[in-house]
Design a protein around this nucleic acid. Structure first.
Lengths: 117, 117
DNA sequence: CAGTATCCTAGCTGATACTG
DNA sequence: CAGTATCAGCTAGGATACTG
């Protein structure tokens, strides 16, 4: 759907898709395993229910995340990465590595790998 | 300065540093050449003077951008990437490539490389 | 559990004016 | 030129309450 004419460079395209406040983090956590809404919320810790819902809907509309609803009581909804969603993981891996090194030079101490999954 | 305890994963660290609304784009444009304030503003097109100033100050404080002031009339201020700033460029290159491919699959046509520099 | 709905505030934009 | 300052207006985001 994006209009090419609107973009001076394709970095801006990527930012429109994964640059939302919580999107990268959501994708990162989903890259390890399929998660339910409440599991995602716990992992993000500071996100509000409203924002998590909103960002997930946008990721779904952009084709990065798949939403699977199970007709159960209590209801269960699982989120996973689509193939397109998987394709952004290399970007996130670089971000993870860069953040680790940034912390290490600014703190002077060894920093553990990301605590996720 | 970031407090390790605040982060569950280092992707969040990176997002704190380059996740600002205009920061990735600023770094991307500076990765090609040193730019003056007005040049940056033209390349970003939609950024307000206030936000550009603010984001540049934060990037400077985080050590990614160097600000060189020349004592001339009219004044000239040039922004460039520090070594730390250079180290985020691989992330931006991946973003550029991903955005290009995303546009191509969603539009069905060939998309030019980023128009920058 | 996985969301809506509502209200309210913080942050961004746009326009304009001013300064070293 | 490269900012700073101010103010109106909008929208992103937060807090809280409620629901299938």
């Amino acid at each position: 759907m994006p209009d090419i004419e609107n973009y001076r460079c394709t970095v801006a395209v990527t930012l429109d898709v994964i640059g939302g406040k919580w999107k990268s983090l959501i994708l990162w956590h989903l890259s390890f395993k399929t998660l339910r809404f409440s599991q995602l919320q716990r992992r993000l810790a500071k996100v509000t229910q409203k924002m998590l819902t909103q960002q997930l809907r946008e990721l779904e509309a952009d084709g990065l995340v798949h939403r699977e609803v199970y007709a159960e009581v209590p209801p269960r909804v699982e989120y996973s990465l689509t193939e397109l969603g998987q394709s952004v993981v290399p970007i996130l891996e670089l971000m993870c590595q860069w953040g680790k090194e940034y912390l290490e030079v600014s703190s002077g101490e060894e920093v553990p790998s990301c605590q996720v999954g």
